[in-house]
Design a protein around this nucleic acid. Structure first.
Lengths: 110, 110
DNA sequence: TTTATTAATCGTAATATTGCAATATAATAA
DNA sequence: TTATTATATTGCAATATTACGATTAATAAA
């Protein structure tokens, strides 16, 4: 089917999955790392930096923007994309709660 | 195309994406949370707990096992699945390095 | 206005993922 | 041996994702 049955999961579970899905492609990981590294960017830089076609990068950027992890300001003919640090921090809180489950001490069972 | 061009990314970027992809479905998030919660489990419990069909759960478990995040021991006719805590900790290190990029202080650009 | 330049959108092909019915496999019980 | 129980595998349909050429839109420069 390819259709995720979101209604049978909690909002938290769906939110974790949405963020994780965004990081589930190396191009988006690379884009985010690059944005953090130079702390400002235009789409063209990313195209030459990463090696995918311009429409592909644009599509990945759109997804990240839709999730709120990045924001873009138009500067002339180019667009200055950067990390939305506030939303990034909020995302980290959501993901940490999931990733740090192992910190509540329990026995190993098998 | 639907084909990720992994060869143009670093091993680290691909590894982050692989883990993230595993968390990119609420059923797998739910399965992992459940395994942490009861610290032991058989597949049947998960089927009734989550509400997806048995083959679907089995498939999700297979993916998580393949990634090394869980392990399964056969106990009679059932299988005891549980978190592989060592590999979970290793995964967290990989993910944290990515998620904590914002901790290196920089200016907001736009 | 015309001509770059840059990024977004559209359309589409190829591949991946999700979900489940049907079936197979494996271990145990009767 | 023959059920029974529990999980895995197979096969397939439906949907999602990825990638990119072609085009469009918007601004800047000439």
């Amino acid at each position: 089917m390819g259709l995720t049955k979101t209604e049978m999961f909690t909002d938290q579970q769906n939110e974790i999955a949405l963020f994780a899905k965004a990081f589930g492609h190396p191009a988006r990981v690379s884009i985010l790392q690059h944005l953090f590294k130079i702390d400002s960017c235009v789409c063209g830089d990313l195209v030459s930096e990463i090696g995918l076609a311009q429409p592909t990068i644009s599509q990945h950027l759109k997804e990240l923007k839709h999730l709120g992890l990045i924001k873009g300001n138009i500067e002339g003919t180019s667009v200055c994309y950067c990390i939305d640090k506030e939303n990034w921090a909020a995302m980290k809180n959501v993901m940490s709660e999931f990733l740090d489950q192992d910190l509540s001490q329990k026995q190993e069972c098998c």
